[in-house]
């Protein structure tokens, strides 16, 4: 059992994925990272969180990462895990997620990168619910963006600011 983050990092280090953060040099779009409890604290620890940061640093520019506090192995669970999303306790789930929401807002980042679907859904939901202005995005979207291979239809979670950046085969939009 391995996490794909480890391989993302490996492939970038080996030069197999020729990612570049040039697209964000001028834009300085800011990103924060939600470490998934499942992958980081509960399974692989700080090394995988470091891999994740390595990848994101290469993809968006290290200087454009704004960390939440706490993070990595001591990250604060967003509240999307453990079936909370499906449990029906919506109010409690959002109360739980309020801390995470505040942490994200505190960073002032435009995007919260989530690697896990539960996190993605919860971070997306609390952002919407509490009126946050950040977008919630999968890491793979950004890798492809930085590789210049992200097509127009693969941008569901990108905000308007990045909808038109480095579009691959814009004509294929449907």
């Amino acid at each position: 059992m391995k996490s794909i983050y480890e391989y993302y990092a490996k492939w970038i280090r080996e030069g197999k994925l020729k990612v570049s953060s040039d697209w964000n040099k001028e834009r300085k779009v800011k990103f924060t990272i939600q470490d998934p409890c499942q992958i980081v604290r509960k399974t692989f620890g700080d090394p995988i969180a470091d891999d994740l940061r390595y990848v994101i640093g290469k993809v968006v520019g290290e200087e454009n990462i704004i960390e939440m506090t706490p993070n990595k192995s001591n990250n604060y669970c967003c509240g999307g895990g453990g079936g909370f999303l499906q449990s029906g306790f919506t109010e409690a789930r959002r109360a739980y997620g309020k801390v995470k929401f505040d942490q994200i807002m505190e960073t002032g980042a435009d995007y919260c990168i989530t690697g896990c679907h539960n996190c993605h859904a919860q971070v997306h939901d609390i952002g919407h619910h509490f009126g946050g202005h950040y977008s919630t995005v999968h890491i793979w979207t950004l890798i492809c963006l930085s590789l210049g291979v992200l097509g127009p239809n693969e941008r569901a979670y990108l905000g308007d600011d990045l909808k038109d950046v480095n579009v691959f085969h814009p004509e294929s939009e449907h």
Binding site: I66, E67, M68, T69, P70, N74, Q103, T107
Partner: peptide, 12 residues
């Protein structure tokens, strides 16, 4: 204070 804190943090 009878408590063991969980974290000592300094947000960015």
């Amino acid at each position: 204070v009878h408590s063991r804190p969980h974290d000592v943090l300094r947000p960015v």
